[in-house]
């Protein structure tokens, strides 16, 4: 799903919700996943003027989950370790974007370079 404008945020969240409902994810985990997705998509808009999000249902053994991959062509994050620290921000937001988002999901992976932009991948397990 393409994210180009701020108006894309709500439809995108609804799409994530559809997937989460499809695998019968509980309300709390759904809320956490959608909030995390919302944070990441906002980062993408703010720092990279948008990008592409890939949504899929994954399974591992008996457990189902949702994986979201956020890919942008932005300037990249210079110091990922620093960006993952609570309270750090370069933008004018609250500075709890990345570390806060990480707490909401089960798996969080981030890769970034100035050449290729930033890719964030998160997984929320149905019962995670």
């Amino acid at each position: 799903m393409k994210i180009e404008r701020e108006q894309d945020v709500v439809p995108f969240r609804n799409r994530v919700k559809e997937y989460a409902t499809k695998i019968n994810m509980g309300l709390l985990n759904q809320t956490k996943l959608i909030t995390a997705a919302s944070e990441l998509v906002r980062n993408m808009l703010k720092y990279a003027n948008g990008g592409i999000v890939h949504i899929e249902v994954i399974s591992q053994g008996r457990e189902n989950g949702i994986r979201l991959i956020f890919r942008d062509q932005g300037p990249g994050i210079k110091d990922i370790q620093l960006a993952m620290k609570d309270g750090y921000t370069t933008g004018k937001s609250l500075g709890l974007g990345l570390p806060g988002t990480k707490r909401l999901v089960n798996e969080f992976d981030i890769k970034s370079s100035a050449e290729e932009g930033t890719t964030v991948s998160i997984i929320k397990w149905k019962n995670g």
Binding site: L27, L28, Q30, T31, K32, T35, E39, D86, L94, L96, P99, G100, T101, R103, L104
Partner: peptide, 14 residues
């Protein structure tokens, strides 16, 4: 505030 929203807010750090 919905309970799930409250829990999420705190985990997020808001």
């Amino acid at each position: 505030i919905q309970p799930a929203v409250a829990i999420t807010l705190i985990e997020l750090g808001l």
